[in-house]
Nucleic acid binder design. Structure first.
Ligand SMILES: [Mn+2]
Ligand SMILES: [Mn+2]
Ligand SMILES: [Zn+2]
Ligand SMILES: [Zn+2]
Lengths: 134, 134
DNA sequence: TTTACTATTGATAATGATTCTCAACAAGAG
DNA sequence: CTCTTGTTGAGAATCATTATCAATAGTAAA
């Protein structure tokens, strides 16, 4: 009689697949607009709104990380290996820092302040090689 | 004959003074809108645009720090003693961490990656006491 | 297959924080 | 006072992101 809603897991659509695949190809931490341009090269019919929705979806599925960085546009990263980000305050470029040992942030000490840090989302502001004289 | 522009340093206007004074009173890292509401209690005639402009000005003068934090609105801090910020990913609250020794980020090691970090602008994402079960 | 239902999409409008425009005003130099 | 430039309030514009909505596509029951 009443229609029982199914478990609904057919969620890997062609659009979402393209977004994830294109994001995996690059290491530039592109903005949504930049992802859209990459996706367009694969399929002209995918809309910008769908790119935004796909990115949201992939972030929720924890297949993609969303970076706030500097600037107005968010940036995205499909590399899930633990690393943090070095964000240039001048040009906005985002580079990776995989050697997390270089960041000896003492989680336990911060924990005593009543705060559970997520260090894999850490964005360290500064100046990149090109923008920094030193 | 030609008018030589003066050194022009009469820049501490009443509006800017109120903005800075109100910001110094609080430790909540308010948004521009929240600063506007504080300023309104002192002087109803100050506009939101002026609050934005004053905050920009104070940031440029390095009297105020601008935080990107999570969320859409920027936050501001008039406390210039060296400290970093703990940003709750859930509720958005920003708290201070003055004991920078707790953050033993190795600037030299990061420097080897060709990046000059500004650790006094560091925002550490995580979960605050209220939002974290642990 | 046919039907019923729901998720997803493209196109487009709306939102909202921030920035810009501009005429009026304020203040310093002469 | 006069000239010039900085600052303001009011409101418009910008632009990244989100919401709306009708159309479509996928799924499962019958
Ligand atoms: Mn990365
Ligand atoms: Mn602070
Ligand atoms: Zn740079
Ligand atoms: Zn919280």
């Amino acid at each position: 009689m009443s229609y029982i809603p199914k478990s609904t897991c057919y969620r890997v659509t062609p659009q979402r697949r393209i977004v994830l695949e294109e994001l995996k190809k690059v290491c530039t931490h592109p903005t949504a607009q930049e992802v859209y341009e990459l996706v367009q090269k694969q399929d002209k019919s995918v809309s910008l709104a769908t790119v935004y929705r796909s990115l949201d979806f992939l972030v929720e599925q924890e297949l993609v990380i969303k970076l706030k960085a500097r600037g107005k546009q968010a940036r995205y990263d499909a590399d899930l290996t633990q690393h943090c980000h070095l964000v240039c305050k001048k040009c906005g470029r985002v580079s990776d820092c995989f050697d997390v040992e270089k960041l000896k942030i003492d989680s336990k000490e911060i924990g005593k302040l009543g705060f559970c840090p997520c260090l894999d989302y850490l964005e360290i502001p500064g100046l990149c090689r090109e923008c920094c004289g030193c």
